[in-house]
Write a protein that binds this DNA or RNA. Structure first.
Length: 428
DNA sequence: TCAGATGATTAGAT
DNA sequence: ATCTAATCATCTGA
């Protein structure tokens, strides 16, 4: 083991072109080409190597030791360090002090927001839950949700493992370099500041690697998220009950099918969908209804009849007949305000009119309508005067193609036109 | 497979 | 912010 450094020193000495004793003996390829000359040279070199004896090495060591122990050595060493420090500072001064990395901060924030770098539980699932909520993903999509969570956890684990690995490697390398520099500082001027700077450089290098890790983690999360959101975009029809609840509300508020925020929330709760889905639904419904009233007339009649029957049954039970909050049966939009039931009456009128064409609805609907009329007269909710004078246009749409203001009964519908005016609007 | 239905998205208006 | 109108993308039933 002790031989190795000595051999290395010997080799180093051979390689030193400036060595006074050797340089003249290094064979010159361009020079003497005769074999004897070359042999002679090699012999000389070998001779030189052989003369590097243990004794001369010991001598060198002793000389080094003497220098190290020289009383002026620390002072001179410090001066050298100082000079070096100043030189290095003047050279590197401009490069130092990088501005705080905005991109790194962005990445950190994002990883924290996505729950990758935050606390173990909650962050990720919260982000997923938020994504699910904003996406309107209901209970039936919980499988996708848990899949998303599982993948996010996977990413999180990989991220933390890699991060730990990098940190460990960074620490190991830093320690190694520090030890090396401390060792070397005995033979060449290396100030603690320089070591510190070197450590900083190493840390920067490793943090740039960490940034790459963070970046790729962010990318992975983004890809996962976009896939999840794509899955969200993959629409599913609302279930039958939800559609019925929405339709009931729509047709019982036909003159003004604009549910308030509270109504939207209530509908959303009843239908197990989000408020924005309710808004979407009403937006679509309004536009599609308006575009083709004829097509929806049958549906309108059906829901009007159903609502009528519901109202009748509620009345028959005599419990909540006058309650403004329960115009419909249980399971339907029971809390919608009765003040809008003018629409209902309108629909009934259209059903009952001579010109009614909804033959599919049939005689049973007719009887329901009769029941409703009876109910209405019984409950006193709507006088005949209201029925006769506060007639909404059948579809609640005014001449401008907009919906009538429910507070201002139709002045568009011609008084000469009765319920039969349905047909003029259902032509499209 | 295809046409129609339907939920979501988008741009523009208010 | 909410609405309309147009459009997209997918679902659904024949």
């Amino acid at each position: 083991m002790d031989e190795q450094p000595r051999l290395m020193h010997a080799h180093a000495a051979v390689g030193m072109s400036g060595h006074p004793g050797l340089s003249q003996h290094i064979p010159d390829n361009t020079g003497a080409t005769d074999g004897d000359g070359r042999k002679q040279d090699i012999g000389d070199i070998l001779q030189q190597i052989m003369t590097i004896t243990d004794q001369s090495l010991d001598e060198a060591q002793a000389r080094k030791h003497a220098l190290n122990c020289h009383r002026m050595k620390p002072a001179l060493f410090n001066v050298l360090c100082e000079i070096k420090e100043k030189t290095v500072l003047s050279i590197r001064g401009a490069q130092e002090e990088e501005p705080p990395d905005a991109q790194l901060m962005r990445l950190d924030n994002m990883l924290l927001a996505e729950g990758v770098s935050g606390p173990e539980k909650g962050g990720g699932s919260a982000a997923a839950a938020a994504a699910a909520a904003s996406a309107g993903v209901g209970a039936d999509n919980s499988a996708e949700h848990s899949d998303y969570r599982a993948k996010l956890t996977q990413i999180r684990q990989i991220y933390h493992t890699e991060l730990e690995k990098y940190e460990q490697a960074c620490n190991e390398f830093t320690t190694h370099v520090m030890n090396l520099l401390r060792e070397q500082s005995r033979t060449r001027p290396i100030s603690p500041k320089e070591i510190e700077r070197m450590v900083g450089i190493i840390h920067r290098k490793f943090s740039s690697i960490q940034m790459q890790l963070k970046q790729s983690t962010c990318e992975a999360v983004m890809i996962l998220r976009s896939r999840f959101l794509d899955a969200r975009r993959k629409r599913r029809n609302f279930n039958k009950q939800a559609t019925e609840i929405l339709n009931e509300y729509f047709y019982s508020h036909l003159s003004n099918p604009y549910p308030s925020e509270e109504a939207k929330e209530e509908l959303a709760k009843k239908c197990s969908i989000t408020v924005s889905q309710v808004s979407n639904w009403f937006g679509n419904k309004r536009i599609r209804y308006k575009k083709n009233i004829g097509k929806f007339q049958e549906e309108a009649n059906m829901y009007a009849a159903r609502t009528a029957v519901n109202a009748a049954s509620v009345s028959a039970h005599g419990s909540q007949a006058n309650s403004p909050s329960t115009p419909n049966s249980a399971g339907s939009a029971g809390s919608f305000n009765m003040s809008n039931s003018g629409d209902l009456f309108m629909s009934v009128q259209s059903l009952n009119g001579d010109s009614y064409q909804g033959s599919q609805v049939g005689a049973n609907v007719q009887s329901q309508v009769d029941t409703l009329r009876h109910v209405i007269s019984q409950t006193g909710g709507y006088s005949d005067g209201l029925a006769a004078n506060q007639m909404y246009s059948p579809q609640g749409i005014n001449a401008n193609g907009g919906w009538q203001d429910p507070t201002t009964p139709s002045s568009v519908t011609s008084p000469t036109e009765g319920p039969g005016s349905v047909h003029s609007d259902t032509s499209n």
